[in-house]
């Protein structure tokens, strides 16, 4: 790890100002992704701006048709939340499948969404539910937020403050864990709303994406059998030592069916 300055602002504007005024500065939330990259000397920001003392970024609120999760809310809190378990059980289940207990206690939803790891779980939940990313300056729809490998619509200095999730009729998440890392080798989030079904897939390519043919089929008939024959194209899918592209594509169908099963149970 290389030396860096450390700031712990109390207000969002102050944090935003530090970020824009110090070149090569970085936000740190739970540090579960950032700290290992610093230790391996893969990143060497001159300053870290710690979000942990900012007011109002932690906690889960019930807004009726939506629930809002503060950016600094750790995965373990989401997994254990009675509110989330009642209103969007699929999202609580997703949070409970992230990493291990230590990671779930430190890692935050804001950090995970901002990082947009191609194998992370939350992006599937956020895109699958059509959530809104609330930042220090604006609101961004999930469909416009995830731009590809570790890339998002966030501008320099922009801080995620919360994620707002619409409450679906039903939702489910199925994850096939990568054997070693236990990130998503394939993760599929399925959500059924009054006006249709959304299906979001993580782990198989450079970023999370939706599967319109599955969405159409499930909107007609919300049952695993409706999508059993729908295969996704292997073009652009990741092939690595854990899974070849065609195997990943196959698993998308299997996990989508299991996600529907989970949503129905």
């Amino acid at each position: 790890m290389k030396p860096f300055a450390y700031h712990q602002p109390a207000q969002i504007p102050e944090a935003a100002k530090l970020l824009t005024s110090i070149e090569d500065s970085k936000l740190v939330a739970g540090g579960m992704t950032l700290i290992p990259t610093l230790k391996q000397r893969l990143a060497s920001p001159v300053a870290l701006v710690d979000l942990s003392k900012l007011g109002g970024l932690k906690g889960i609120t019930d807004d009726g048709a939506t629930i809002t999760i503060g950016a600094m809310t750790p995965h373990a809190v989401v997994a254990a939340s009675k509110l989330v378990q009642t209103k969007i059980p699929g999202l609580a289940a997703l949070a409970s499948m992230i990493g291990d207990p230590a990671v779930r206690s430190r890692g935050t939803i804001g950090g995970s969404v901002a990082n947009n790891d191609p194998a992370a779980d939350y992006p599937a939940g956020v895109l699958g539910l059509g959530a809104t990313i609330v930042t220090s300056t604006r609101e961004i729809a999930a469909d416009k937020f995830f731009l590809g490998l570790f890339e998002t619509a966030l501008e320099p200095g922009e801080i995620i403050t919360a994620i707002r999730f619409p409450v679906p009729l039903r939702a489910g998440y199925a994850k096939f864990k990568a054997p070693a890392s236990r990130y998503a080798l394939v993760g599929v989030f399925v959500a059924k709303f009054v006006d249709g079904v959304r299906v979001a897939v993580t782990g198989v390519g450079p970023g999370v994406f939706r599967v319109p043919p599955m969405e159409a089929a499930l909107s007609e008939n919300f049952d695993p059998s409706a999508i059993a024959a729908i295969k996704i194209d292997t073009d652009g899918l990741t092939s690595d030592i854990h899974a070849e592209a065609d195997y990943r594509a196959h698993l998308v169908t299997v996990m989508a069916k299991r996600a529907v099963d989970a949503a129905l149970s």
Binding site: A180, S181, D240, I241, H242
Partner: peptide, 9 residues
């Protein structure tokens, strides 16, 4: 290619 616990199971 399996150079860490992320890739070596």
């Amino acid at each position: 290619l399996s150079g860490s616990l992320m890739d070596y199971c």
